[in-house]
Amino acid sequence: MCRSKIEGNLDIAYGLASSCSEASERRPTKARKLAEIAVHMKSLELKNEAHQQENETLKRKYEAVQLENEALQLENETLKQNSMIEKFPSTSNAIETDILKKIEADDVSRVTLKDFNLDGPLKTVGKYSVPLSLCETAKQINEVCGDISATSKFNMDSNQGIYQMFCAIIKEMKDLQFEEITEDQILKWRDVINDALRMNFNVGFAMEHLKKIAKAYDGAMRLIKLDNVNSRIFNLKAQLSAAKVEQYEISKISQVYMDAAQQFVGKRVSSGMFESAIVTARGNS
């Protein structure tokens, strides 16, 4: 009976020892745990670097798209302006102009009857004789304004030439489209109106209208200058957009080589050579 009891205790002892041995085998060592943690941390670090690189790539793509959108918006705005600017072929190379100041200036008149095509037979309209081509214009002036020379102190012979030139510029205004006028044309009209005012003609209405024309002309010239500036901005933005795209492409393709370069920055070029040799030797053994 004692013998069977002892044998039973031995069986229990062997069982406990076997269980402890199996548990010991299942339980990882401290070094193994640290290795697993290090591998996990390295994996997380690599994933984080990959995410950062992906974010940087997306950021560059977004910036490139943003620049392209800005360029398209600028191009659309330029096209809108060109729809008006293209109507001024004679001023495509716009120069600096102070047309409004020139209108106000009391300059000596340089205009004469020879500057107008007033040859041919004459016809009397009101007090004055005018070429047949100006009859309708003279009639309209008389009907709307009456005798514009009524306040003049000069005789009819002196007034005749000024009256004809005034009718001539009014006809030109009626015949010409806004897009066809030039600065020289406006200044010629100014000289005739100023000559008429100097002779006390009642033509202030014509000067006020000429100022409106000059203001519109000045605005058209500013549009042309603005278009030139916008074109330069558009070209610069297009170059910047292309550079951004090129930067992205270089970065994307060359990332592996740039990472390799980082391993040598600030080090001697032999750095890592023997470590690689040791790893290779171990791999071959």
Rank of each mutant, 00 (worst) to 15 (best):
A94L: 13
P89Y: 14
I181D: 00
M165N: 01
K127D: 05
I95R: 15
L187A: 06
Q185M: 14
L132E: 09
I181K: 03
I169F: 09
K127P: 01
W189A: 07
P89V: 08
A94R: 14
D184L: 08
V125N: 00
K101M: 09
D107I: 09
D119Q: 06
E172A: 04
K102C: 14
Q160K: 04
P121F: 09
S158I: 06
Q177W: 00
D98C: 12
A105G: 05
C167T: 02
I141T: 06
F116A: 02
C145Q: 13
K174N: 12
G146R: 05
L132K: 13
Q177G: 12
Q160D: 09
D106G: 10
S152H: 04
T124C: 05
V192A: 01
L122K: 07
M199K: 11
N155E: 14
V192E: 05
N155R: 12
D157F: 14
I141V: 12
L197K: 12
G126H: 04
A94V: 10
E180Q: 10
K114Q: 15
K153G: 15
S90I: 11
V108P: 10
M165G: 02
D107E: 09
S92P: 06
I193N: 02
V192C: 02
I181F: 00
I193M: 07
K101L: 11
A168H: 08
L113G: 03
A196F: 02
L132H: 13
K101E: 12
N155H: 07
S152I: 08
G126I: 00
L122E: 11
V108F: 10
Y163R: 02
Q185T: 10
V130C: 00
L113T: 03
P89D: 06
S109H: 06
I169P: 01
F178T: 09
I162G: 03
E180W: 15
D106F: 10
A168V: 08
L100G: 11
E104Q: 14
D157S: 07
F116W: 01
A138F: 00
K139Y: 05
M156N: 10
F154H: 08
S90V: 14
F178N: 06
I181M: 08
Q160R: 07
L197H: 08
V111M: 09
D147F: 03
A168M: 09
Y163D: 03
S90M: 15
S129H: 03
K114H: 14
Y128P: 02
R198P: 01
V125L: 03
Q160M: 07
E143C: 08
L122F: 08
E104K: 15
A94Q: 15
